[in-house]
Design a protein around this nucleic acid. Structure first.
Lengths: 155, 155
DNA sequence: GACAGCCAACCACAATTGTAGTAGCTTCAA
DNA sequence: TTGAAGCTACTACAATTGTGGTTGGCTGTC
């Protein structure tokens, strides 16, 4: 059950993972250059972080081009985001609803957004039920869907 | 416009602010004892953090009982939570919707929750509009309610 | 085959965070 | 009035995080 190794990422590490996710894979130099110049650390800083990420198992070397190592993410963006959300939820007493309520309260989420999301979800839900029924005999319902099977690229 | 000083809190600091918020106000000892024993640091650890929080302007001394200082929160729980949410949203490219979508995707938020929230909100919204109309001339709605300040004796 | 330009490996170091000990006041109760 | 108990104000220190320098090894190019 591909149990992803829940790694904990610091802010800078996240920043750099962001670049890796965006690139798919790349050398330290490429990763560094992928970062917005505003907050672009020195080459060696990025290198250090990449190494640390490697130790944590968040990225790995996939090959070597010239004398440069090419890295790619092991931890998916989704998994990392989930980790963050869980942490935040913990602070909120584990209640996603309180979180949402606050989002609304501060106007970061409008009633409109919610309605929108709701209808989208209702559709998805219905869809899933159908699929579920169609494959009744097969594997039990995937409680935890894997990465990617949705269109709507994360940017 | 009571511009709250956006302080940044670390995990432990948040934990301790949690205790302060729960207490309303209290001595270091009370704050320490308020923490769940599982993760209850030594008295002096809590003291150190309280001092740091004081420097950051997140708490302040309100009075002295016996020879013990009584602290209370300056930063509201809501403000702190907001800070956290903003940070998380930043990672999510500033989109609360993506965040919600992921909450749903991982089953942490159900369609039912959303519907529920939606209707609650619709009511609130309507309510606010009414209030707003009724007090057109007066001060704008209080966006950020004060935290409950309770007195709690130092032993 | 020597050199310029890159890269990998290490190393260093300051800032922040978590964790706690100690010395010496204050108080309250006997 | 004297001690014990509790508190404050400092101090210490290890772990984590952010940041980047240095050295020496490849590589492709005249």
């Amino acid at each position: 059950m591909a149990k992803e190794k829940q790694v904990k990422l610091t802010r800078l590490e996240l920043e750099i993972m962001g670049a890796v996710w965006a690139l798919g894979s790349g050398s330290v130099r490429e990763i560094q250059e992928q970062l917005p110049e505003r907050k672009r650390p020195a080459y060696t800083t990025v290198q250090t972080i990449i190494y640390r990420l490697e130790e944590k198992g968040a990225v790995r070397r996939v090959k070597k081009i010239g004398n440069a190592h090419i890295f790619e993410a092991v931890v998916t963006r989704k998994a990392a985001h989930n980790r963050l959300i869980d942490e935040l939820l913990n602070v909120f007493g584990g209640s996603p609803r309180l979180l949402m309520a606050q989002l609304v309260e501060t106007g970061q989420l409008t009633l409109h957004d919610i309605r929108d999301l709701e209808s989208t979800l209702a559709k998805l839900e219905a869809d899933r039920i159908v699929k579920l029924r169609d494959s009744r005999q097969k594997k039990p319902a995937p409680g935890d869907r894997k990465e990617g099977k949705r269109q709507g690229g994360a940017r």
